[in-house]
Design a protein around this nucleic acid. Structure first.
Length: 493
RNA sequence: GGCAUCGUGGCCGAGUGGCUAGGCACAGCUCUGCAAAAGCUUGUACAGCGGUUCGAAUCCGCUCGAUGCCUCCA
């Protein structure tokens, strides 16, 4: 029996602006495409939040026993710096500035991207295709769109004819814009433009002689437009219509709007059933962006080497911090917020050390079955991780009560509780429980246990100087002793 | 300027017509040799103004403020 048959998921669909019951095209299977990074610089934390939101979504869908094909691309070409005639792609520009091969730039930042995601404990997508690996597919789509009359060629470049498209389809339906409004609000163009209308966008750009990234095409040497790669790769691996398309809120317009237009122009129908948009991570109340410099790199958080944070934070703490906000809400990064999350994270993790040693009773004083369903209800409601976490803390409280003998649990319920906690905390939220130290954990616990026994002895002899000394010295090392009814436990921070 | 979104107690952050999440901080209590940890208790907050309603943080209008997109952006 698959879990998804009992747990009914609802998602907020940006296309309709409503929360809808999620029904995949093929029962039990889900195709999900998420716009990945443009690899021309290090990923910053804002980028990570979007990918983390979809990592969590991917994890939950898998947890529900769906078979998910998750495609997240790497954009390594064709990303125009601007839309003017001398538009240059970001990779090539960076390569020129750093005097290295474009693919060297791509390699460097792709590796960085993967390293960072690994630290955050991301699951790998099913397929991670690159734009440069799909030039042929992109050219085929351009030919098709030209054949259908929704694009025009000029001077070796091909542009999508938005006005023409809008006569038969609806350009702007995702972002709630009307073409007429856009036309009337267009700013004065300073540069000469090949485009018939400012709203038109490039499908293929002619490469000037000095341009290093170039491919042959029916229209001469050039490179593909930015929006096209996603259409080409999502279609190739997920089909002309697939279930979920995700990405950052800032890609809604024009990127996703253009994707819809390309697909509709080419295939005659909408490509995606559910559009999911993750909201921005801000810093100092402003969106993080590579271009403005208002950003922080993950490694700067892990190491504490930055000006806004008082200390380093572990990847799992940052992950927990992000999971405490709903993925569609703007989240602001601050030291206070991270500090609070870190404490909460430790409180949550400490409970896992207790679960194995809990005393069971004949009956339970708490209703595990309904608690468990509350956890699912939260996630089924558009992946509401903050509510899920609130429920997890409900369990934390109960586990502590059981440990103190103020509540009871049956063996059967305890098994269920353990499994549920493990599933949600580690499988779904993707948190990790590990101490930062490199010390072998068995040896560490052996040593600390020894010290705990020595302290017990000293206390029994009322030698408080010695017992307090042990406690304080361990605390200085980041090992906290916790005295309870059943004895002393410890946690490493 | 246009189109959107948002404004919740000290901080972060859920909730969308009545039953007032959660985390962190603070205070009191229990426990403790003293602490810490843990547990218990207390905080009646929803930008402002008006309207709809038996009832609104939640719906509508206006005002103010913030942010996002409109050009590359997760």
């Amino acid at each position: 029996m698959h879990l998804y048959k009992n747990q009914h998921l609802k998602v907020y669909n940006s296309l309709t602006g409503t929360k809808e019951v999620f029904t995949p095209i093929n029962e039990g299977h889900i195709g999900m495409y998420v716009c990945g990074p443009t690899v021309y610089s290090n990923v910053h934390l804002g980028n990570c939040r979007t990918f983390m939101s979809f990592d969590m979504i991917f994890r939950y869908l898998k947890h529900l026993d769906y078979k998910v094909r998750y495609v997240r691309n790497i954009t390594d070409a064709g990303h125009l710096v601007d839309d003017a005639d001398d538009g240059e792609d970001k990779i090539a520009k960076k390569a020129r500035l750093e005097k290295i091969e474009p693919m060297e730039v791509v390699q460097r930042y792709t590796v960085d991207f993967h390293n960072i995601l690994q630290k955050f404990n991301f699951l790998s997508p099913s397929i991670e295709p690159t734009a440069t690996g799909h030039i042929i597919e992109q050219i085929e789509i351009i030919k098709d769109i030209l054949d259908k009359g929704f694009a025009y060629e000029i001077n070796g470049s091909v542009y999508f004819d938005v006005k023409k498209f809008n006569e038969q389809y609806e350009y702007g339906k995702l972002s709630g814009r009307k073409l007429e409004d856009m036309i009337s609000n267009t700013r004065e163009l300073t540069a000469q433009d090949e485009k018939r209308n400012p709203q038109d966008f490039a499908l293929w750009k002619k490469a000037e002689p000095q341009h290093i990234m170039r491919w042959p095409s029916p229209w001469g040497d050039g490179f593909p437009g930015w929006h096209l790669e996603c259409t080409a790769m999502s279609t190739k691996y997920l089909g002309e219509t697939f279930d979920i398309h995700g990405g950052g809120m800032d890609l809604k317009f024009p990127h996703h709007e253009c994707e819809i237009a390309q697909s509709e122009a080419s295939y005659g129908h909408s490509p995606v059933n559910y559009w999911l948009h993750a909201n921005m991570l801000t810093m100092n109340g402003k969106k993080m962006a590579k271009s403005t410099g208002n950003n922080i790199l993950p490694n700067e958080i892990f190491s504490g080497e930055n000006s806004i944070l008082s200390k380093p934070y572990a990847p799992s703490v940052v992950r927990f911090f992000m999971m405490q906000a709903h993925y569609t809400s703007i989240l602001d990064l601050s030291d206070d917020a991270l500090l609070a999350s870190e404490k909460g994270y430790h409180r949550l993790m400490d409970v896992f050390g207790l679960l194995d040693s809990l005393q069971t009773s004949k009956d339970s004083s708490i209703d595990i079955t309904s608690w468990k369903q509350k956890c699912y209800d939260a996630m089924n409601d558009d992946f509401n991780t903050p509510i899920l976490i609130a429920n997890l803390f409900e369990a934390v409280k109960n586990i502590n009560l059981i440990k103190e003998g103020k509540a009871s649990i049956s063996a059967r319920d305890l098994t269920d509780l353990k499994e549920t906690m493990n599933s949600f905390v580690f499988d779904v939220l993707g948190l990790e429980r590990k101490s930062d130290g490199n010390m072998d954990s068995d040896k560490l616990s052996g040593v600390v246990s020894l010290l705990i026994r020595m302290r017990e002895e000293a206390r029994a002899n009322k030698d408080f100087a010695t017992s307090d000394n042990i406690r304080d010295q361990l605390a200085a090392l980041g090992i906290q002793l916790k005295d309870g009814k059943e004895g002393t436990t410890f946690s490493v921070s």
